[in-house]
Computed example of a mutant assay.
Amino acid sequence: MEELRITQINTSEVSVIQDFKEITKMRLSLSVVFSSVAGYLLGVETISWTILLLLSIGGYFMVGASNAFNQVIERDLDVLMDRTKNRPIPSGRMSVSTAFVIAVVFTILGIAVLYSINPKTAMFGAVSIFIYVSLYTPLKTKTPLSVFVGAIPGAIPFMLGWVAATNDFGIEPGTLFMIQFFWQFPHFWAIGWFLFDDYKKGGFFMLPTGKRDKGTAVQVLIYTVWTIVASLIPVFKVTGALYITPVSGVLVGVLGLFLLRYAIKLYKIRDAKTAKQLMLASVSYITLLQIIYVADKFIRVWI
């Protein structure tokens, strides 16, 4: 009997931790923190581990708050979709008030932690939460243009790291923003494609034409090309202190061809399997690109 009671307690604790991870979308939040850290390493002259830690914590709070608010607002729609019906709120494991408190606390802590780095970093963090929650979330059920709006907060983390490092916004963080902004479109349209039927149940408009058709595939191709072009601009030394060597430019170009291959494949085949492959390729692209950018900088410093 005692063993059963201990097992129930342990199971309950695991459930609470799992629900907390889900309401804040921990994996997504950590990927955003990775982008912020990459931006910081690109912008900083001497690494401050304290600021790096604060940026990571503040960035996690920022994204966690946005995700928690999003799930509070969309709770009635999440019930309708297979991929979201088991989230903490629609499943009944977490109350709306609890999720709302988590969102508010994360917002306050996130902005406070980022402010301790510098005011500009906190401002961009606050703007990101506002656009994601107040504009992107309600627009998802009204217009495909929601993806354009959502691409703004989605592109902020990469540039946020540079602003945290320099307390300045100029062409360098603007370029980092542009790269991740264009990248959002093939990434999210690929998700919208292979989850089309599920999104339809919730009334979400994610694809630019509203359909899995040639028009959407063409736009995926166009924005994939823009992503590659934006990623290669720093090779030409026109983006201030943000610069990568021709060798790294070649590596980024190869990555771009890898991404473009799947975008072309989607244009030709236009099925859910290919769209999922493009989504996975896009995740690999942005992660490896950030690693190449950072490695390029520190290799140049060491040499």
Rank of each mutant, 00 (worst) to 15 (best):
Q18W: 12
K25W: 01
M26D: 01
L30M: 14
F34A: 04
L42R: 04
G43E: 10
E45W: 04
I47N: 14
L52R: 07
L54C: 05
L54G: 05
M62G: 01
M62S: 11
F69Q: 00
N70W: 00
E74W: 01
R75C: 03
V79L: 12
R83L: 10
T84N: 05
K85Q: 13
N86H: 13
R87W: 10
S95F: 12
S95R: 14
V96Q: 14
A99I: 07
V104M: 13
T107Q: 11
L109A: 14
G110W: 04
I111Q: 06
I111E: 07
S116Q: 09
P119N: 03
F124T: 00
A126D: 02
F130P: 02
Y132L: 04
L135H: 11
S146R: 06
F148P: 04
F148L: 12
G150A: 07
I152K: 09
I152G: 12
F158D: 01
M159H: 02
W162M: 07
A165R: 01
I171N: 09
G174Q: 11
T175S: 15
Q184L: 06
A190H: 03
W193I: 00
L195N: 10
D198A: 05
G202T: 11
P208M: 10
T209V: 08
A217E: 09
L221D: 06
T227I: 10
S231N: 10
P234S: 04
V238T: 12
T239Y: 08
T239V: 10
A241M: 09
L242K: 05
T245N: 08
G253L: 03
G253C: 06
L255Y: 08
F258I: 04
L260E: 07
I269P: 05
K273R: 14
T274E: 11
L278A: 02
L280Q: 13
L288Y: 08
I291R: 00
V294D: 14
A295E: 08
K297Q: 07
F298N: 08
V301L: 10
I303P: 02
